[in-house]
């Protein structure tokens, strides 16, 4: 079965990105497909490659990047929500005249249409938020 996942809260403050991670790992291990995870609201902050948690804590962004790499999960960060919160990829940083970008490997910035498309193309949609 195809599952779509929405993450709508930021890392560390809320558990949403952790629960979603365990859920997606289990779903894939059980033979389901998770073609896409959509990051919205403060969830876009999960994609920051500048996150440096203490070494004895889980690294939420690295975990997601690894999932994308190992299982081809498309990690989509909402562009409107991302721009508000200072999350930019190289293209957007250039376009907006900013001196840095901060989107981690495995994530890509795109529009809200990707969320709707995910709802249309998957069998189940699960939202993790607060």
């Amino acid at each position: 079965m195809k599952f779509g996942v929405v993450i709508s809260e930021g890392p560390y403050t809320h558990q949403a990105a952790d629960t979603a991670y365990h859920f997606v790992k289990s779903a894939i291990a059980k033979g389901h497909e998770v073609p896409r995870v959509f990051f919205y609201h403060d969830g876009v902050n999960v994609a920051s490659r500048l996150s440096v948690p203490p070494q004895d804590e889980r690294h939420i962004q690295n975990n997601w990047t690894a999932l994308a790499k190992d299982h081809g999960v498309d990690l989509v960060v909402c562009i409107a929500a991302a721009q508000r919160r200072g999350m930019l990829d190289d293209n957007e940083a250039r376009r907006q005249g900013k001196d840095a970008s901060n989107i981690a490997e495995g994530f890509r910035i795109s529009g809200l249409g990707q969320l709707i498309e995910m709802g249309i193309q998957t069998d189940r949609l699960v939202t993790f938020g607060d």
Binding site: M1, F3, S26, A27, H32, R124, V126, T127, F128
Partner: peptide, 13 residues
């Protein structure tokens, strides 16, 4: 949790 999602027609958070 995954089974519950699969076994029901929709999930509402």
């Amino acid at each position: 949790f995954v089974d519950l999602v699969a076994d029901h027609d929709r999930t509402q958070s």
